[in-house]
Amino acid sequence: MRSIPTGRQLRLGIELRKLRERAGLTAAAASQLLGVKPNQISNMEAGRAGVSPERVRTLARHYKCNNPALVDALSEMTADRKRGWWEEYRETLPAALLDLAEVEHHATHLRASVTVHIPGLLQTTDHARELFRQVVPEFSPPDIEHRVSFRVKRQVVLFRDEPTPYLAIIHEAALRMRFGGTPVVKGQLRHLLDMSERDHITLKVLPFAAGSFPGSGQSIFYSRGPVPQLDTVHLDQSHGPVFLDAEAQLEMYQVLLDRMESRALTPERSRDVISGLLSDL
């Protein structure tokens, strides 16, 4: 029995519960079909108990799920039992940050929109360090370095053999912020230009001239799963990341991101804006 399930284990349980509820079955009824005690269904749906791929498929049959792609994806979630690199930070960082790294690691496509900050996956170490120095209450120097190293390791999804496709919509305001002084700003802008040249990365600037736009008051990060039902929205809050996965929420944030992207500059013009800002420093 797990004492603290990971975000991925919790998500698997949530999706199994959704399937059961759509089938109109109680946990007690599901346990009878499976031949287990009722609390075992509850523990599986809460992420406290492990589930085998075979059991997922059995439950799906009982729940009359006619979505083979979803069943395959859920079965794959149970088969992935390796401890990710983020586990080494379990004693030093909040669990929500580890869940974020896990979501990014398994995403098939990443999409972000930010207004004030550079997306974490595109930050330089100097830029990230400066941001962590401004946190209230203050982090100790070791805590700052833990978080910087964690943020850099998250970026491996953009550098592995099969990198995750990534679309970043960055408002001009974020590009003009002077976090850390001129040398840090120059390094960050150069890094954005370098990253924007990679085939799997699309960087689009939302200029001041675009005026008002939906979702302007928040940073939105969208991780696409192997099937739409397993997509995840991550909102960056001052107290830590918040994860959303309800169907209506996913749909709303997809619409917001679509509208932002439609108002952003092309990748070519976006690079021109960043280059212009860099030359002005």
Rank of each mutant, 00 (worst) to 15 (best):
M177C: 02
D126I: 12
V56L: 09
F132K: 04
R17M: 08
R176N: 05
K153F: 00
G7W: 00
I144K: 09
E54V: 15
G211S: 12
A23D: 02
V148T: 10
E268W: 04
A30L: 11
P207I: 12
K204L: 09
P207D: 07
E251A: 15
S3R: 13
L230G: 11
L167T: 12
H171L: 03
F179D: 05
E130G: 13
A28T: 15
F132H: 09
Q249C: 11
L122K: 04
R20E: 05
L59H: 13
L16P: 00
P183R: 05
R2N: 07
A60H: 06
P141C: 12
L70F: 10
V51G: 08
R271Y: 10
D126E: 15
G181N: 07
R22G: 11
E76G: 04
Q218F: 06
A49V: 12
Q123I: 07
L70A: 03
A209F: 09
S140R: 09
S279K: 13
H117T: 06
L110S: 02
R269G: 01
H106Y: 02
T124F: 08
R17N: 06
S279P: 00
R17W: 10
R178F: 02
P183W: 02
P142A: 12
Q155K: 05
E87M: 06
Q9M: 11
L10P: 00
N67T: 11
I220H: 07
P228T: 04
I144W: 06
H127R: 12
A264G: 03
D199L: 14
T108I: 07
K37T: 13
T164I: 10
R22W: 10
E130M: 14
P5S: 04
R55W: 03
R271G: 06
V255S: 12
L16W: 13
G240V: 04
D258N: 14
I41T: 08
R154P: 00
L192G: 00
V273G: 06
E87F: 03
L206W: 11
L122V: 05
H200D: 11
L70K: 03
A248H: 09
I201G: 01
L100P: 00
L10S: 00
K153D: 10
E251I: 09
P142R: 13
L100W: 08
R8V: 08
C65V: 15
E130H: 14
W86M: 01
G225E: 07
T232D: 02
P5F: 07
A79Y: 03
T124G: 14
L189K: 09
L10C: 01
R178A: 13
G180E: 07
